[in-house]
Design a protein around this nucleic acid. Structure first.
Length: 760
DNA sequence: GAGCACTGC
């Protein structure tokens, strides 16, 4: 083993110790004062500067390819800016190489391994974190998981003490910040794809801006698309209001895309889209097409229509129209079918016939998450499904809305990745200029923030309303979140995090679910609640193929527990386990094995967190009692999501919000009980409540007395029903009703259980 | 009597 002059105990502040430069390519490097010339010499060395081992044969080959990236030519400029500034905003267009190269430049200058620290680079998506880490490990000629690693949920590919370059999801870094608010293990933090404005990135920006003031040794790089750079420069002007963070700009390496607009607005964008695809197929040069639509049904429908019409064209004119394949793409497709987008276009039908063409019909997944090479034509109708949150009725829903200019630009760019392309926008140029918003609203303005507010509290943010957000959420949204967390006893009346809230924040769950999981040992059903919570955390497990709906519904009925959908979910998971994860069993029962497998993963992760807090895993033998206990535990988390049946038409009214809702058709209840608890409120063709279980009104009064205090209700059937129950209860017990206090037993730590474990 | 844009912990 070669001599390593660096030790972790002593931060290097001066030039590194003397060592012949042939043996130590980093000889003479002054941390954060490194020049491009030094880095380039070190890169050309036969010895890997970080492992001190000889470079592998392919290293130089990869290096030659890296040198052709636009960002490589600006290494000197970047390093100077990195030396002279604490925070840099960087703009790098597609193909600039920023995600792979900038973190490496930072490593060469920052030398995190000499200080026992790391450089972090966040990504909004897991696959990106993994694949970029792999690429960079290859470029740096190290084994993935050693010097270069990644960290995503369920998978930590890093080695403490060895890894100094870590790619990770933004959510993962946020989690780490909850346990170490100063993020001391990082010398530089790079937030990549900041323009995507995910919830996690937005919160991280606020935290890191503040952290940079406390930690003068921390360096920060914000990487974004062009349009947002100014906003971030201004936001990160920590040196003074008139001193925006410096901008480092790198051109992209893409091909020009010619953009076309329609002359008149299109009344039916799906019809127009299909027409445009067929027009391209008839009249344009060979090259694949990408069409953006809004959802699964629309996509499957359009694929069928395009296929029919294209076959017609081929039959009418086989000498000039080639074969066409139409491939749907959306996230709920099984991975194997998603892979089809990488198939090549069909060959000509005869040796000298017209060439074939591939059409991918996709949701927004192809805008950011997946890149398809070989796309030359993009058809952009200008719509996508977007999440909107209405704090007044506390409902998140999906709405087909016009996209932003930034989004339209991103879509068009998909046509120019391999050669010059064309983008057909199915709206007028005037509408593009005047009607489309510049940017898509960041997620923080469109979401229920219950989770986020709890995280912020755990992160030590005292004043949530005046936190330095890049874009501040609506006060009403924050109030809704604070209210919920206060009712759940995660925050006290002054908005301070309670000990219970601190534990809740550690579970990667919605606060309601975290709460019911933590109190579940008191009802002797934590084993079951853990399963239910895991099942609620994964995508729908029920498959319902269009041509086998009846069979699928029958299979589902076999697994249904009539007392409630939550119990049905538990039953499905247990049956899956009893059938030893059998694929055939899943298939026979129209269940998604992928989702069930995911639920098992989530369950194991949550169980580890439970163990850390010594929350017991217990169960009840008698099934009837067990089911009742489970329903009581559900009330402790979801008492704010209760609906009361009103009138004879099977309509329900949500408690307090007084929204008229119906049971979702997927609901498995055999009757329509007077009181139900629901997991979600969905607004589709009409307002529905989904995943519903019957509860008893006495439980509402007992486990959430503050929320169900009848005096806080407006007059109506719900209030009268509550008063009747209250009266009956007080006659029975002789006291006022609630047995032990305001929010008990769900109000505080499960002290009894903790002690029991502590002594064992 | 109907759906599930997309991520992330």
């Amino acid at each position: 083993m070669s001599y390593n002059p660096y030790t972790k105990a002593h931060p290097v502040s001066k030039s590194l110790p003397s060592d012949p430069s042939e043996k130590n390519p980093l000889y003479g490097f002054l941390p954060r004062k490194v020049t491009a010339k030094q880095v380039q010499t070190a890169m050309e060395s036969d010895i890997n500067p970080f492992t001190k081992k000889p470079h592998s044969p392919q290293y130089k080959k990869i290096l030659e390819a890296r040198k052709k990236l636009p960002v490589f030519g600006q290494m000197d400029e970047f390093l100077k800016m990195f030396t002279n500034n604490q925070i840099i905003v960087m703009v790098g267009e597609t193909g600039s190489g920023k995600t792979t190269q900038i973190p490496q430049f930072v490593c060469y200058s920052d030398l995190p391994h000499t200080k026992g620290q790391m450089v972090a680079c966040t990504q909004p998506r897991r696959v990106a974190a993994m694949s970029v880490a792999k690429r960079v490990a290859d470029e740096m000629d190290v084994q993935l998981g050693k010097e270069v690693g990644y960290s995503i949920r369920f998978e930590d590919m890093t080695e403490p003490g060895t890894t100094f370059m870590k790619y990770m999801t933004d959510g993962m870094l946020l989690r780490e910040a909850m346990n170490d608010p100063d993020l001391k293990r990082y010398s530089t933090i790079i937030l990549d794809e900041a323009h995507e404005r995910t919830l996690a990135t937005d919160i991280l920006m606020g935290l890191i801006k503040d952290l940079a003031k406390r930690r003068s040794d921390l360096k920060v790089v914000i990487m974004s698309a062009t349009l947002d750079a100014q906003k971030f420069q201004k936001y990160f002007s920590i040196a003074g209001p008139s001193q925006p963070a410096p901008l480092f700009k790198v051109p992209g390496r893409t091909h020009p895309v010619e953009v076309f607009y329609t002359q008149e607005p299109e009344p039916d964008y799906v019809e127009a889209a299909i027409r445009t695809v067929l027009m391209i197929h008839r009249a344009e040069e060979p090259g694949d097409i990408l069409l953006f639509l809004t959802g699964e049904e629309e996509i499957e429908d359009s694929c069928r229509k395009i296929k029919l019409e294209a076959d017609d064209l081929v039959n009418q004119d086989p000498d000039s129209v080639g074969p066409l394949v139409c491939i749907p793409l959306y996230s709920s497709l099984p991975p194997q079918q998603q892979q089809r987008i990488f198939d090549s276009a069909p060959p000509p039908r005869t040796a000298d016939g017209p060439p074939g063409r591939k059409v991918v019909v996709s949701t927004n997944i192809a805008e950011t998450s997946l890149t398809i090479d070989g796309i030359v034509y993009v058809v952009d109708p200008g719509f996508s499904k977007q999440k909107v949150y209405n704090p007044r009725i506390r409902v998140e829903s999906l709405l087909v809305s016009p996209i932003s200019k930034a989004s339209a630009q991103q879509r068009a760019g998909r046509a120019g990745r391999t050669r010059p392309g064309k983008c057909f926008r199915l709206y007028t140029e005037k509408d593009f200029m005047t009607e489309l918003e510049e940017q898509t609203h960041p997620e923080i303005l469109r979401s229920n923030l219950a989770n986020t507010v709890l995280e912020l509290a755990k992160l030590g943010v005292k004043d949530l309303v005046h936190f330095d957000y890049v874009d501040a959420p609506a006060p009403e949204t924050l109030m809704r979140a604070l209210e919920l967390l206060n009712y759940l006893a995660a925050l006290d009346d002054d908005g301070n995090l309670t000990p219970l809230g601190a534990i809740m924040a550690d579970f990667p769950l919605d606060p309601q679910m975290a709460k019911m999981l933590i109190v579940s040992p008191e009802f002797n059903c934590s084993n079951e609640i853990l399963t239910i919570v895991a099942m609620l955390s994964v995508p729908n497990v029920w498959l319902r193929p269009p041509n086998q709906r009846k069979e699928a519904d029958q299979a589902k009925a076999m697994l249904t527990v009539p007392d409630g959908d939550h119990l049905t979910l538990m039953n499905v998971f247990n049956s899956y386990m009893n059938n030893k994860h059998d694929r055939q069993w899943c298939w026979n029962n129209y269940l998604s094995q992928r989702a069930l497998q995911q639920a098992e993963n989530v369950r194991m992760q949550l169980q580890r967190t439970m163990e850390r807090y010594e929350i017991e895993l217990v169960s009840t033998q008698d099934e009837r009692r067990l089911w009742q206990n489970i329903r009581k535990a559900l009330v402790c988390g979801f008492f704010m999501q209760v609906a009361h049946k009103e009138g004879e038409k099977n309509n329900y009214l949500t408690v307090k919000d007084n929204q008229v809702v119906s049971l979702h058709p997927s609901c498995g209840l055999e009757t329509t009980p007077e009181w139900v608890i629901f997991n979600e409120f969905v607004l589709t063709t009409k307002p529905y409540i989904r995943t519903v279980t019957e509860v008893r009104p006495e439980w509402l009064l007992e486990y959430a007395p503050a929320y169900f205090d009848p005096s806080t209700f407006t007059d109506g059937e719900t209030k009268r029903a509550l008063l009747r129950v209250q009266k009956k209860r007080s006659l029975k017990s002789g006291d006022g009703g609630a047995s032990n206090g305001r929010n008990s037993p769900a109000s505080d730590l499960p002290a009894k259980k903790k002690k029991k474990i502590g002594t064992s």
